[in-house]
Amino acid sequence: MVMMDVPTRVVYSRPEALDPRVTHYCPGCTHGISHRLVAEVLEEMGEVENTIGVASVGCSVFAYNYFNIDFVEAAHGRAPAMATGIKRVLPDRMVFTYQGDGDLASIGMGEIVGAASRGELLTVVFINNANYGMTGGQMAPTTLPGQVTTSSPTGRDVKRQGYPIQTAELLSTLDGAAYVVRRSLHNTREVRRAKKALRTAFEVQKHRLGFSLVELLSTCPTNWGMSPVEARDWVEERMLTYYPLGDYKVSPAVAELNL
């Protein structure tokens, strides 16, 4: 074999902010992608050594094992309160929560609304996969009408079980929220857009413009009973109609950031 003297350039590698270990996430789950995006953004901003993460209860309960940054682990739903405590005493640190839909939009609705309305200088990474993943796929506040879960075995009946919560829309009504958007992780284009949104959200915090949240539509192939590819398609076909992607709140100051 002839070795060619070709200059090489690294174009892709694991972010240093991600610990090189195998995660406990299922094949085809998009938690790995969102972890990586958060790590890349913090690294690109030079904030890895200035950040404290707050993990929540759900599949991402062990998120702190996968990031090379300081982390605390909150009680179910309370991550925004815990993050508030940290940010208020260490105002120059970057503080973010990483929460699922059961954690944030059900048991933690009081805490997230409180944090957003106070305009806490936090960034919330909100994973919406339309079910409780860790406990085995029960109905979540985000479960779609008609969606079968282990606790809505005949499909979510909105007359009996109510309607899904559109979190980004809901939080966008609060004046303390400076940046609230919904993105998706179901294809490459949307992954790139999600990363941009996460960058903006962390910049909003860095520039002290208010509360920021990025809702990420995510897959849960195991609990949805689908292959990873089918799960990706299900996001596109089913979730996008109930949860349209878009910028629900971009305060004038955020718009002026011009990232």
Binding site: V72, A74, R78, M82, A83, G85, G110, V113, G114
Partner: peptide, 14 residues
């Protein structure tokens, strides 16, 4: 805080 739940968890974080 928004509630005593919020308050004690802010204490927890801080």
């Amino acid at each position: 805080a928004e509630s005593e739940l919020g308050a004690i968890n802010m204490v927890y974080g801080a």
